[in-house]
């Protein structure tokens, strides 16, 4: 279910701008929708935030709009959003307040089996990739074929839960497509193809050793 960005007292042109940014941004870690009437997860208000909080107890966060370069006098460290609205600042704010963190992400991803396979439909955002040094390599694997958390764990020599977390983050940002069927286990026979694959794996290991990657 999408998170709700509520607005109170904002000019209609800003509300439409917020809608466009939320709809088009590829860097949002959660799905958001803009509403002028529903209970919301984050409320943007034009004016006095404490007064708005009294009127809208359903909002988890209330953020006042301020002129650029101006902090809220009463609470300078408080979250604000500056006018004119910049897309990247709104996205950063929404990503800050969205429920996240490795444990939450992992929990969401673990709803799927660690054998469920997925592949990328676009290269992930830098926000996601910068969360762990291994993510670029895992994404490279997902760019060419569908992988599960389990198979990524083997490829990346990393804990399966980290791979599940990564898949969860990719799913949240809409960079992933799932293919539900799990790959059948391969027979261990020494066919010519298996031998060639073994040889190629040996080559990759040698290149990695030579480049200082293994």
């Amino acid at each position: 279910m999408p998170l709700v960005l509520g607005v109170m007292g904002l000019p209609q042109v800003e509300v439409e701008l917020l809608r466009i940014i939320v709809r088009l941004s590829s860097n949002l870690r959660s799905l958001w929708t803009v509403s002028e009437s529903q209970p919301c997860d984050l409320l943007l208000v034009d004016g006095d935030a404490p007064a708005a909080e009294r009127q809208t107890p359903a909002a988890r966060f209330v953020v006042p709009m301020v002129a650029r370069g101006e902090a809220v006098a009463a609470a300078p460290a408080r979250r604000t959003l500056a006018r004119p609205i910049y897309a990247e600042e709104l996205v950063a704010l929404l990503n800050q307040v969205a429920p996240s963190g490795a444990s939450g992400d992992a929990a969401r991803a673990m709803v799927r089996s660690i054998r469920a396979r997925a592949s990328l439909i676009r290269w992930p955002s830098q926000v996601t990739l910068q969360r762990h040094p291994i993510y670029v390599r895992l994404a490279a694997a997902l760019s060419k074929s569908a992988q599960s958390a389990e198979s990524l764990s083997v490829l990346g020599r990393i804990d399966v839960q980290e791979c599940s977390t990564f898949l969860g983050l990719l799913e949240e940002e809409g960079a992933l497509t799932w293919s539900e069927e799990a790959r059948a286990p391969r027979p261990s026979g020494a066919s010519a193809g298996a031998e060639a694959a073994q040889h190629k794996r040996g080559l990759l290991s040698r290149i990695r050793r030579r480049l200082g990657l293994a």
């Binding site: 670029v136 060419k144 074929s145 391969r186 298996a194 190629k200 990759l204 480049l211």
Partner: peptide, 21 residues
């Protein structure tokens, strides 16, 4: 440069896994 090459190696590895019988 090595990091860039490593992304190529990961792609080669998964393609080979896919091609294996």
């Amino acid at each position: 440069v090595v990091a860039l090459i490593e992304t190529l190696l990961m792609q080669i590895e998964v393609l080979d896994e896919e091609a294996a019988p």
